[in-house]
Nucleic acid binder design. Structure first.
Lengths: 148, 148
DNA sequence: GCGCATTAGTTGCGTGTGCAACTATTTAAC
DNA sequence: GTTAAATAGTTGCACACGCAACTAATGCGC
């Protein structure tokens, strides 16, 4: 097996590690967030994205990108959260095709309640992953990225 | 904002990067694999796991772990592949609750056809990700894990 | 201005998913 | 041995997802 073949296998192995760690983190977050505040991971991700904009609004396409969801899934996700009065759709004047979304007060409150749970679970799961040889290399490196 | 708070934010940022890269890779693999060989990503992952056992069989729970799927989803995934005659269920004698699965000849053939596509797409997507500042740190590190 | 391609977002539809409840088998208790 | 607890896998069900087709608004060519 030559060097090029090795590279292929190492990439594949890295991808399996990435997928495994992703699955573990996501299901742990899903479990805790839904139990404590009734939010799924994508729902939290969307609230988090809106909140990091700090009062500013985002368009559907930006939300789709932030959540790694299709346009149709984003529409329904926003609709669900709007039905729960956590955010509101706002037509934007300059481009009447576009739709802005912004957090309501209730949405901000729920986000502030959810964030500590999210962060604690993430910390716990990463610590656990560091103990597993298969996941450790990735889990250890994750908190060392440029804070941007 | 203190050091502990920074750590929380850096972890969260790392998780967002991980999730973003995961989404990009998965959707690219999904697109190419389904177009070229009619396999979804989880289907390929399962065939790959079975193949890496090199002729040996795996139990449902092991497959569930390898694919990061629930027991019920694993049951249906295996059923789909069995219906397509890519693998076969084998009752195991010593524990009659357990079920082994093993690749059929057609399954091995399809896997060998799918693997180059999978590997090429993975290489391409990782190269693209290295160009994006948000993803680059993770994309560059991924192929540097212990080959194990 | 007028028509055509493009973009933003939404809906119909089929499908894969997790949870909870279930059956079947094994293991432990005594 | 008989009964209870635990484990392996499967099914009913509700729901979130992506794709393709759609509507509405914008921008571009001329």
């Amino acid at each position: 097996m030559g060097i090029a073949d090795d590279a292929v296998e190492i990439r594949a192995h890295g991808w399996r590690t990435l997928a495994a760690l992703h699955g573990i983190i996501e299901s742990a977050l899903e479990k805790d967030l839904s139990a404590e505040v009734g939010l799924s991971v994508v729902e939290y991700t969307l609230l988090d994205a809106l909140n990091r904009q700090d009062g500013w609004h985002m368009r559907m396409a930006q939300l789709a990108r932030a959540t790694a969801l299709s346009p149709s899934a984003t529409t329904r996700l926003v609709s669900r959260l709007e039905d729960r009065a956590l955010l509101s759709r706002v037509l934007c004047a300059d481009d009447r095709r576009g739709i802005y979304t912004e957090l309501t007060h209730a949405g901000q409150q729920l986000y502030r309640k959810a964030k500590p749970i999210h962060d604690a679970t993430l910390e716990r799961v990463l610590k656990e992953a560091e103990q597993q040889p298969e996941l450790a290399p990735l889990a250890r490196i994750l908190p060392q990225f440029p804070s941007a």
